[in-house]
Design a protein around this nucleic acid. Structure first.
Lengths: 186, 186
DNA sequence: TACAGTGATGACAGCAACTGACATCACATC
DNA sequence: GATGTGATGTCAGTTGCTGTCATCACTGTA
């Protein structure tokens, strides 16, 4: 029983995404996910805090990507530009995984509970970005405002990019959206 | 049994807030809320979709307030200024109910699940504001970006205002934050 | 080789959130 | 006073999630 099969987390993640796509999030039971992964329900909850969290395993990576980018930017660069650069990096990462990103987005868009979880991840991201800015000497409320405004740009850009009619790549959409924000507030 | 007692919703809301403050959100059971309100668990779920929703009964009112304000603003006013004015109106409303706002915020801050619900309410608000702007002839992505940026300002301002050390009133904090956003993006 | 420790998992019991179906009571309207 | 309507009670059931303990694979050590 206790034999160690590789990739328990990975198998759970795959099984969950498949079932969420096939049957919908609500119709999928944790027992079903575990069964498809060849594990038990109890084991699922040892790897993920709840039924939703399994879709957000990669969120930490993206956050690190953004924070590292901000941290690596020279202090002479304006805060808003540091955030803009970081967002473009994240955009490149997501652009390279467009298919998976769209699949994931489809599942999330179909369920309000998943949207909540998505929003809290983005909120954490904003906090982390503000913290990174503070680490570079930016004071409040500029740090929080810049981070929040940057995330606002990211949200709008991402939503635009998800549209099948959109031909620009995500980093470009992000650049354009940031430019639009500057225009709006002028 | 079926006798009609006034304010079933109101009684549930009061009972829930009291219990959330006394025992914490997690420790409070729906059965307990219903009992304190003199109702049954089943009836609770007839009025509120879930255990969290009872804290957000007034969200619809605030949304209407904001949307109406945007709609009433003459089309000659720049979108960002229309949003700014609307936010100040909402700020006045919340300032007048500061005690209740802080109580509610304390409960929400103490629980991640409630934070998620709060964020989705704000996201809906952003959508509604963008829609209102579109109704005034503003095109995408300016409408969404302006609404999202406005909400970003509101979030930061609200968080600042909640701080006991803060002496400014909410509308003023909002004005100052909006000015800060303009500075940042310049 | 033997043995103790560690880590992942299974098995099982249980709580609480939430739902569906049906009965009941107060009230309004005819 | 019959009849419909709306809010509530009652009850049974599903499912997300947790606590607890036993089991098995693997590791290090003597």
């Amino acid at each position: 029983m206790g034999r160690w099969e590789p990739n328990a987390r990975g198998r759970l993640e795959t099984a969950a995404l498949e079932l969420y796509l096939e049957d919908g999030f609500d119709q999928t039971t944790v027992a079903g996910i575990a069964a498809r992964a060849g594990l038990t329900e109890r084991t699922f909850f040892r790897h993920y805090a709840d039924k939703r969290e399994v879709l957000f395993g990669g969120a930490g990576f993206l956050q690190d990507l953004l924070v590292d980018s901000v941290t690596a930017t020279p202090a002479s660069v304006a805060p808003i530009d540091a955030i803009a650069t970081a967002l473009e990096h994240a955009g490149t990462f997501l652009q390279e995984r467009r298919a998976h990103s769209l699949q994931r987005q489809a599942v999330i868009e179909a369920n309000p509970l998943l949207q909540e979880r998505e929003l809290i991840k983005l909120a954490r991201l904003a906090s982390a970005l503000a913290e990174a800015l503070r680490g570079r000497g930016v004071t409040e409320p500029t740090a929080s405002l810049t981070a929040e405004a940057g995330l606002a740009v990211f949200r709008v850009a991402f939503e635009t990019w998800v549209d099948p009619a959109e031909t620009r790549e995500l980093p470009q959409v992000i650049r354009d959206s940031m430019a639009a924000l500057r225009t709006i507030t002028t």
